[in-house]
Write a protein that binds this DNA or RNA. Structure first.
Lengths: 364, 364
DNA sequence: ATGAAAGCGCTAACAA
DNA sequence: TTGTTAGCGCTTTCAT
């Protein structure tokens, strides 16, 4: 009924506890029949070694457990990343503890504390805003930390990010190349590093074309689908509305898409009319979406590779765990502009009323 | 440099190790100044209790660790479910170990063994095919198991599923109601329980209308996007092709959608023509997709609620952990048919060639 | 080739 | 209120 221990197995096999330990650990120097006797007892009792007790005594090998702390495990980007990290861990006989921070520093600290208290061998973290000094003691005690997706404010550790700024710059340059000059920026919380970078890329692109951002066209802090919808509705009500739009993450893109259809009905009803009308303005979004290419028009996006981000981070972490003490590495992966059609529409004729958008310009 | 222990804190604070233990555990009956002294030493040394060592001695409270074993953490359904389980765990001060089985019984056993060896308090498992007798010893030792998404073949434990059969029946009945009689079934591996259930629902619906399945229209074992594409291309080349189609999961739906556009070009190119043409046949898919309502026509789907599945499973598990010894519960959640438009197209006129599909019927 | 003793970091059960 | 002893399940070290 209770979980059997080595002692139980030893009694059942008529040997000492130490002999069982040797058999279970495959230590050479045990006679073959003793091995057989013990293994049989192990099977008969359904014995399984208590890894936590083992790790308490033998710390040479660590706990074979790593911690993964992401913003939101349900976000497809992090889910893909988590899967790829888990695969790398599994290959190395490690298990992974996961936790979502919800972008709350408080929860991040709780989760990380729970993980280090369980003696994880290393941590892969999507850091929230704010100081990460609290990680220092764990790091000094020998727990390596790798940051992913964004750097930690005040931590000089291995970091894997994508070139957000460059990706955004490409996206906006692309829109400029199609004749747009009034390009809106819709972004998430500006205190999130990726969002600052993407906004910087937006500005880069504009200024490279001798333009500067019109503050009226810039919206930060969009946290949800409906907020993005309202922001766009707002933008379209402007006297001089934008002809193109850069959306700075997938959630915002989704919201924006819903607002596109019907400016007079901002509750994004699921009705049949919703998809019938084409997009009224050019749009490029950061992050690819599964059905993006099947929209009307197909959605042009900046795509990043979460699997590569994850496996790179895992490789870095495991080499640290293996003892690599070299200087922290900063890996920046590239993004890819996937041109489909929504970003290739040419600019609207200016001065046109916004609440009844014209049909899309024919794309040659 | 090394991780400090209670002994270190005791020395630093000039008290006994036991006093430190009491302070750290908030045991009442320690004088306020002693508490203060110890807490200061704790802070100064950056002490954190070793939870694994604690759990070794004090097993009343368990390890506050649960294991979650899914098919594929990158699958949006499981990612959402995992997030909701993690939230429930976090609320209760628990951490969660996750692992993907990739639907391989071997890997499932490895992952579960790694989890139980770490003394998890309970397990939430999406079981692969085959026997799960290997779980019995862990269960007898007091580790509760909850199955999600599908039942384990030979395990009578709490199980949370959705009514796959009913959902599929509704979907196909819906197509029948729009005049379709030649309805294709495209499914994943038939040895996966959900797929068998959905196929059964397909048959239910047909026979309720006095029809029986045409084996030529049924394809099982579609494991990937391209396989689904080819299967559909095949179906359309039939002398008497189907006028409607039920796709039994999201991956297959995605593949099918790509094959819809251009029967002559089955490599699903990302080009501009891709989205221009409407769907040639009626389609209902199992599993909702983020942009489903924005397709042309909007995609009708059977949707399930992964968050509800996850939180239900978590609730069950935690009440078992809390000591509930009642009979195993089988929770079956309902699905919802989301009628958008792809499933509401009326049947093609029979005898019409399939490779140049007509335009969609106008929807009232 | 096998076993006995000590101890990993902590807490339960006792003293004092 | 505080400290001492024993021991959780295992591995190390040192016998035999």
């Amino acid at each position: 009924m209770k979980r059997p221990t080595m002692k139980d197995v030893a009694e059942a096999a008529g040997v000492s506890l130490m002999t069982v330990s040797r058999v279970v650990s495959h230590t050479p120097g045990v006679s073959p029949d003793t091995v057989a006797k013990v293994e049989q007892a192990v099977r008969r009792l359904g014995y399984q070694r208590n890894v936590n007790a083992r790790n308490l005594r033998q710390k040479r090998l660590g706990t074979s457990t790593i911690g993964l702390v992401v913003d939101d495990l349900a976000n497809p980007f992090y889910a893909l990343m988590a899967r790829s990290i888990e695969d790398e861990a599994h290959r190395r006989g490690c298990v992974v503890l996961v936790g979502s921070t919800n972008d709350e520093p408080r929860r991040e600290r709780e989760v990380i504390a729970a993980f280090t208290a369980r003696q994880v061998d290393g941590l892969i973290v999507v850091p929230t805003i704010g100081s990460h000094g609290f990680l220092r003691s764990a790091m000094e005690a020998g727990t390596p930390v790798v940051c992913v997706d964004r750097p930690a404010e005040d931590l000089d550790v291995d970091t894997v990010t994508v070139d957000n700024r460059d990706g955004a710059r490409h996206a906006v340059t692309h829109l400029l190349g199609h004749g747009h000059t009034r390009i809106a920026y819709l972004g998430d919380r500006y205190d999130i590093w990726t969002q600052r970078e993407r906004y910087a890329g937006y500005l880069d692109a504009l200024s490279a074309h001798g333009l500067s951002a019109d503050p009226a066209l810039v919206r930060h802090g969009l946290r949800s689908h409906p907020e993005a919808r309202f922001a766009l509705a707002d933008l379209r009500a402007l006297a001089d509305p934008p002809t193109a739009l850069f959306s700075s993450n997938d959630l915002i893109t989704l919201g924006v898409l819903d607002a596109m259809d019907d400016p007079d009905d901002p509750d994004g009803s699921d009705g049949p009319r919703a998809a019938a009308r084409p997009l009224p303005m050019a749009i490029v979004g950061f992050d690819d979406l599964p059905l993006a290419k099947r929209l009307d028009p197909p959605l042009t996006v900046v795509s990043q590779d979460p699997v590569a981000v994850g496996s790179t981070a895992a490789s870095l972490l495991f080499s640290r765990i293996a003892g690599d003490r070299s200087a922290p590495r900063k890996v920046i992966l590239l993004t890819r502009l996937v041109e489909r059609r929504s970003g290739e529409r040419t600019a609207h004729r200016p001065g046109r009323p916004a609440h009844r958008p014209e049909l899309p310009a024919a794309s040659s």
